[in-house]
Nucleic acid binder design. Structure first.
Ligand SMILES: [Mn+2]
Ligand SMILES: [Mn+2]
Ligand SMILES: [Mn+2]
Ligand SMILES: [Mn+2]
Lengths: 151, 151
DNA sequence: TTTGAAATATAGCACGTGCTACATTCCCGT
DNA sequence: ACGGGAATGTAGCACGTGCTATATTTCAAA
């Protein structure tokens, strides 16, 4: 039977529109896609710079070892985000390229917003790498509106 | 030997102050502490509401199963952030309470900042749950300054 | 054309973070 | 005081994300 020496968490509160659990569940879901977002964005950058994305370059840019990058690329492949053949470069699929575009746009917008509210550029760049993944469409549009309403 | 049919990533660029790898490494480090931050903040909330934090309540608020919460609490304990005895509640240590205070302050500040730049309250609450963990001290101070410079 | 160093791949370890299934303990109502 | 349902704990699975060590492949210089 439920305890009742202490007030139950289930009773006594107006049911909030968004429960705590919803927020945390949302954050967990995003956490599991954040790595893919960073990879696709990076692969897009490398492809533009060098014409292809090599495992070694991916690993060095991310600050991980090659085996880690290689394993991640296999997961990206399984998810249909990249194409790759052994000992060759990694290339984004259409889905991967679409993700890369979205992530890059978000990344830039977050940095711009942070700088606009007075965050030093250095810190803005650093923090944006994590923040970007958690910014919803709604928030993104608000950032855009805010930046447009300025100089 | 290095390829040279394509320009190497190592050459040809001014060494940037903060490398890409630094940003990603920083984000990875934060990701590994984000869960602890959410737990300590939540345990502080439950302790204030009910006088103690029970595993079941923690699990329900986070939207995970009890075994998951239980295992996480064991990790928190190992890290010296909580005290707990079998079949009893979970209590923050001084270190845990300090973390909870810092995280809660950050959480609130992030929500306020988001709302201040025009993000709807609902989205601000949702996004802040992920964003909060990646906001550095520098950025935090910038947020404070920005909010003080407003009504 | 041979060959060796760089690049890439694979094997296997550690640990985190989730789950389900099952065991144990607690404590309220009777 | 005791019986049973709720709470808590534990075992074990899956998979992600990192690592080191080792094997394999590629390609440009000799
Ligand atoms: Mn990122
Ligand atoms: Mn990014
Ligand atoms: Mn959080
Ligand atoms: Mn929080």
């Amino acid at each position: 039977m439920p305890r009742d020496d202490l007030p139950s968490a289930a009773e006594g509160g107006i049911p909030p529109e968004t429960s705590d659990a919803d927020r945390f569940t949302n954050a967990r879901a995003i956490r599991s896609t954040a790595l893919f977002e960073d990879y696709t964005e990076l692969i897009a950058d490398l492809s533009e710079e060098f014409g292809e994305a090599r495992i070694t370059d991916i690993a060095r840019r991310l600050g991980v070892t090659h085996p880690t990058a290689n394993k991640a690329v296999l997961r990206l492949k399984r998810e249909g985000l990249v194409n790759s053949r052994p000992y060759r470069g990694v290339f984004l699929t259409e889905a991967g390229a679409a993700m890369a575009r979205a992530v890059k746009a978000r990344h830039r917008l977050v940095v711009r917003l942070l700088i606009a509210v007075g965050v030093p550029a250095e810190a803005a760049e650093m923090d944006a790498e994590g923040i970007e993944h958690y910014v919803s469409e709604t928030t993104l549009r608000a950032f855009e509106a805010y930046l447009n309403s300025k100089g």
